[in-house]
Design a protein around this nucleic acid. Sequence first.
DNA 1: GTAGGGTTAG
Length: 763
Amino acid sequence: MRLPIPWKKRRLSPFSCTNHLLFSSSNPTRLITMLSSPPPPPSSNSLASTHLQSSPQNHQLTSILDQCKTMKELKQIHSQMIRTGLIRSPLERRRLLSFCCTHQSGDMDYARLLFDEIPNPDLFDWNSMIRGHSNRHSPDAAVLVYVEMLARGFVPDDYTLPFLLKAFTRDAAVGLGDELHAHALKFGLSSNAHVRNALIRMYSTSGEIDTARELFERSSKRDAVMWNAMISGYNRSKQFVESLKLFEGMVQATVTPTPVTYILVLSACARLKDLEYGARIHGIIKESRMLPNSKLENVLIDMYAECGDMDEAWRLFEGMKVQDVISWTAVVAGFANSGEIDRARMLFDRMPERDSVSWTAMIDGYVQASRFKEALEVFRAMQFANVRPDEFTMVGVLTACAQLGALGVGEWIRVYMERNKIKIDIFVGNALIDMYSKCGSVERALEIFNLMHRRDKFTWTAIIMGLAVNGCEEEALDLFSKMLGTSVRPDEITYIGVLSACTHAGLVEEGRELFSSMINMHGIMPNVTHYGCLVDLLGRAGHLREALETINNMPMKPNSTVWGALLGACRIHRDVEMAELAAKHLLELEPENSAAYMLLSNIYAKCHKWDEVRKVRQMIMDRGIRKTPGCSLIEVNGEVHEFVAGDRSHPGSDEIYSKLEEMSKELKCAGYVPDTSEVFLDVGEEEKENAIYWHSEKLAIAFGLISSQSGVAIRVVKNLRMCFDCHSAIKFVSQVYSREIVVRDRTRFHHFRGGLCSCNDYW
DNA sequence: GTAGGGTTAG
């Protein structure tokens, strides 16, 4: 007999359907109430229900439940069970509940409704509910059920804690881990291997890897799974050397590694970029004749790719029977990281399927290759492809925004994250701070900083650095002392932030003190970059002699940054003699450094040493040095526009140039005098004026004035240091057009407002 | 009658 399936057409669902055979009410509360009362008896026969439960019809219902795939089908079956009375069988009810708790498409709200219908739920039912919440990654809900279960007098068994602990995220583990461990002891479950492994996992999730290790050490019997759990814990804590040590311990203890062991160990090798160890493991796997396993193959590909052996990674990839999205992503990321970004892109375009990890890998590839605009384009394509970005994606995209100074896109990302409930974890938070800082929006950077409840040294360093380069030096130093009051220790990068705060504010004494506190208080040995900061600090403040002495007394060989800092200081203080010395050293180190020639010739030009200017220019010609072209970026309506000096490639060029002309007139009326002292060309005054007139930042600002509403700040990112003339011209623009203008140049930010600059002309 | 360890990215 074939069971008619009328419910397929009638959409019977006891909890959610309207126009229902059984329930005509559309009020869900009423439906639930009705459900809790026994269904109408099928006949007046008192034996009817027993009869029904074993009827062929019900038998068929049961077997349909086995094939059930979706909640919709489940609800139909459920309706039918109510109609036939089968629902009164505890076994069948439990099967419905099981589906909701274990199936991929299971619905825990529905599970709860079913659960509440069970007159006397037993431990199995409670475990199912906890397991269901775990599967849905809802630790809070799982804990609530567990608490309820205890309150109703149940005692957890071997299954309860593993199910519960599996849901635990870091926060849950930190908050409740110890208590649950205590429960395991109290209820005599701690010797169970499943419970122990769950606890090991939980402790390593909460960062208490040593407690996990203690549990591991105190276990009398350690099977391969327990070794794996412990190795996995070290991987999770990023202690990859420990992972490998433990693996060796496992081999010594003659426990046979499983495929999972090798996956874990190879993953550790990949992170350590230990090709030799990884290849050795590969050899062992080959010898062991382990069955082909796609996860193992993927991690092998990844290991070779991470270690830079793309030939081997590619060979393995091609040798795979079926490459899945992870295999593809591993080779795409591998090529991107080894500098073959275009090859990575070609493969990426050929991928049969792309998930958020693949898209993120491609975005990160472009970021690493400094091709930030392409990174944003890929992100756009990702949205177009309807793939949901996650925290990892956001970090890559925000980094691209930061580099481009694309505040608009960055802001958009933040709103997007809010709307799509992408959480601001510590990585995203740090990236947001960095983005806002690099886009010149310190207020927003501080806002993010203040709402982050966990802060690591990168968080502090990002905000300190952000404040330092944006003209908020006092605040930067203030936050640095706050940081010292926390458990987070500054590192060498943090010190670069505080030292540059001192440099920009001209706080020589504070800078000197911080420099020594770095060594005395935190045991951080200053590296060549710190000396560069110190030289910069002293030099800018006019202590050129002391700066030179610092260089001469450095414990290491000064690099180009150090000599560059001195040369920059000579430019400010017009010291030709020392400039020559600094330039000589700098060019010995980097004969191709075009900025050095520029600085030197600028200094000569400023001091009217035209013969010398000519000599430098000759040198540049003879040596075939190419000046890095000045380039300015400005973002308008989510699109980044790029300008180089004298650029006419922009579609709105005509308009931009006429705006520029208008600006020039207005500025001159307001008292602006072009400063051609840094013009490198040996030409007449008029041509010199033209040369600076066309500087890329001026083009970008003219474009900004045309294409944005009045009152909106104009933000420009420049790849080189701003020249004196642009700096003075922009001050006038900010006054004449009543606009806030923010320019990020190579070394810092300039916030122009009402004719003044935040750098106080000290840069 | 339910379980344990696993691959990709910041």
